[in-house]
């Protein structure tokens, strides 16, 4: 455990180097939140509710979505593809550490970094500058737990793509395809109820929705009660365990094809 914490600390320090980038990320978030404000305002026009959601609920959903977006991007796929290309992955394999946990703790350092430097400032701006009133309720209290599960899920997807790089040795196409699938199908950009009914129902059966739709709904509609939230958390937990196990099994296969030239 101690060695994994050292990895976490290291990646946190690396993250600190990119302070200039944080300013731009926050600026990007502000612009994005403003644009989505205009977009959803013209979607709602004078309508009280759409698909059972009020404007405020939808806006909190999408704006918070953009604040946690950078948080839930682990970049593990890019990291691993770099390690494979450079051959440094070989040195990790010779050490008595588990690759999955190594990559997880590596990304946790960046997670903490962007939580402090991007997500929290963005949420503060949302509340104090954009004057968005986040309703208090049960959902808000469960949100942090749900977000952690969402992060672990997002990690599983990125780690899976990273393992696929053992085969393809290139990451751009895989990673972009994954990112689009995750952002669209998870309801990161549009709350799932806006999708056509059939698609909405199918999406609820897929793991993607547990990444964005679940935690964001908890904040946007915090008064749905335990009866709704408990099954949602259970589903998240189920997917985390399932995908953690599946990627571990896949690792045993993928490791057989890994070839490092030189080093």
């Amino acid at each position: 455990m101690k060695s994994y914490l050292a990895v976490l600390r290291g990646s946190f320090m690396v993250g600190l180097v990119y302070r200039f980038g944080f300013l731009f990320s926050i600026a990007g978030n502000i612009i994005y939140m403003s644009i989505t404000y205009f977009l959803w305002r013209s979607i709602y026009q004078n309508r009280e509710t759409l698909r059972g959601l009020t404007f405020d609920q939808t806006y909190i959903y999408v704006a918070l979505g953009s604040a946690v977006f950078i948080l839930l991007k682990t970049y593990v796929d890019w990291q691993m593809s770099y390690e494979i290309r450079e051959g440094t992955v070989a040195t990790y394999l010779t050490k008595p550490i588990d690759l999955q946990f190594y990559e997880l703790f590596m990304s946790l350092g960046f997670f903490l970094m962007s939580l402090g430097a991007i997500t929290i400032p963005t949420i503060l701006l949302l509340v104090f500058v954009f004057r968005i009133e986040i309703p208090l309720g049960l959902g808000l209290a469960i949100f942090p737990f749900s977000l952690i599960l969402a992060y672990l899920l997002s990690f599983c997807f990125d780690y899976f793509i990273g393992l696929l790089c053992f085969y393809t040795e290139s990451v751009w196409g895989l990673s972009i395809t994954k990112e689009i699938l995750v952002t669209v199908l998870s309801g990161a950009l549009i709350p799932l109820p806006f999708f056509p009914d059939v698609i909405h129902k199918i999406l609820l059966w897929l793991p993607f929705q547990a990444i964005y739709y679940t935690p964001l709904t908890m904040v946007a509609q915090p008064n749905l009660g335990w009866g709704t939230f408990l099954p949602m958390l259970a589903v998240q937990l189920f997917w985390v365990i399932a995908l953690f196990t599946l990627t571990r099994l896949f690792y045993n296969q993928a490791i057989k094809v890994l070839r490092i030239s030189g080093g």
């Binding site: 040795e169 290139s170 196409g173 972009i176 395809t177 990112e179 689009i180 952002t183």
Partner: peptide, 16 residues
């Protein structure tokens, strides 16, 4: 392979 995967990725991302 990289070209084919990247093209598919490009296609999806530009249609998002």
């Amino acid at each position: 392979a990289d070209f084919i995967i990247s093209s598919i990725g490009m296609f999806f991302s530009s249609l998002a």
